[in-house]
């Protein structure tokens, strides 16, 4: 609106002089943006470029970094046994967490969106676990899933099932971790975002479908899902980025064990950078990981045109 006014007055002079309005917009724009800009250069761009440089060096902090070219990247693919296994484990963890997490949040939101009494109470019950600090959540689940004394195994034994030892078992440790994550995320912000999305669907649509004789399932299938697809997409992208990077739970629960069972990719980076002080190799792993995440996100963006429906566009 006023933009066209400004630009026409600026070009109207035909001289290469900047109009006072443009000058003012720039002055105040950059003035108010300044704190973020300083942060962007000092805490983001600078460090990102530095780690890109480190990724081509050998650097253990004590002695200066020495340039070794693509050596770290070669090492990653040829000499690091844990590289592939941690990558596969991370994908497995994501495959367990994301579909269950997104579908679970959506299901809870649809249930809450019905005309039910005590909605606030249910919403609070679902939301509470997401507030529990991660370390506390892990500590409490380690107790619940304690192989000998935990209530879960107590209950399973009394039902005649011989229970797994959860975090103590190589096969069960990662699913246990996914379970803790799901408990803490299914009813959290993701569910609230779904609720917001559901409330954006016009009620007339349901009324019309009702009159046409559509049952509950058909209404969900043909109205809710298509109109909710942008929200589903948004939440899926966020959930994938989140669970690919998740490692704090694994770190607090078992530090990657037992027998590397929860040694996810974030754990691998952490160990190299902050335990073995291989800052060069750690940076290379971090950059490889960043490229994987960016590629996956772009891929999802491309795929989204096939199934995401923007109402009214």
């Amino acid at each position: 609106m006023d933009y066209t006014l400004e630009s026409s007055s600026a070009s109207g002079r035909l001289k290469r002089r900047v109009s006072p309005i443009v000058l003012r917009e720039n002055k105040y724009g950059y003035l108010f943006l300044m704190p973020w800009l300083i942060g962007f250069f000092g805490l983001f761009l600078g460090p990102a470029l530095a780690s890109l440089y480190f990724s081509f060096t050998r650097y253990n902090v004590l002695s200066p970094a020495t340039w070794i070219g693509p050596g770290n990247y070669v090492r990653m693919f040829t000499q690091d046994n844990l590289f592939y296994t941690s990558l596969v484990r991370t994908l497995y963890f994501t495959g367990l967490s994301v579909p269950l997490g997104v579908l679970g949040s959506m299901a809870l939101a649809i249930l809450l969106n019905m005309e039910v009494r005590g909605k606030v109470l249910y919403r609070t019950l679902f939301f509470m676990p997401s507030l529990v600090p991660l370390v506390s959540a892990v500590v409490l689940w380690l107790w619940l899933l304690n192989p000998d004394w935990g209530i879960v195994n107590n209950a399973l034994r009394s039902m005649g099932v011989s229970p797994p030892s959860w975090f103590g078992d190589r096969r069960w440790a990662l699913p246990s971790l996914a379970m803790v994550g799901l408990w803490g995320s299914v009813g959290g912000t993701r569910m609230i975002i779904f609720l917001a999305g559901l409330q954006g669907i016009p009620a007339e649509m349901y009324d019309a479908a009702h009159i046409d004789g559509a049952g509950a399932w058909n209404r969900i299938r043909h109205i809710t899902l298509p109109l909710l697809s942008p929200t589903i997409f948004f939440n899926t992208v966020l959930a994938i980025i989140g669970s690919l990077q998740a490692f704090q739970g694994a770190f607090v629960a078992t530090e990657g064990g037992p027998a590397y069972a929860t040694w996810v990719f974030g754990m691998h980076i952490y160990k190299h950078a902050f335990d073995y002080w291989n800052m060069g190799y750690g940076s290379a792993l971090a950059w490889f990981f960043a490229i994987v995440i960016i590629a996956l996100t772009i891929m999802q963006q491309r795929l989204s045109t096939k199934w995401v429906y923007y109402y009214g566009e």
């Binding site: 950078a273 902050f274 995440i293």
Partner: peptide
């Protein structure tokens, strides 16, 4: 600015720490 949300923290964490 929106793009910075996509970059995992690991990329900036090591130099920030240093």
């Amino acid at each position: 600015m929106l793009g910075t949300m996509m970059i995992p923290a690991w990329v900036t964490l090591i130099p920030q720490y240093l």
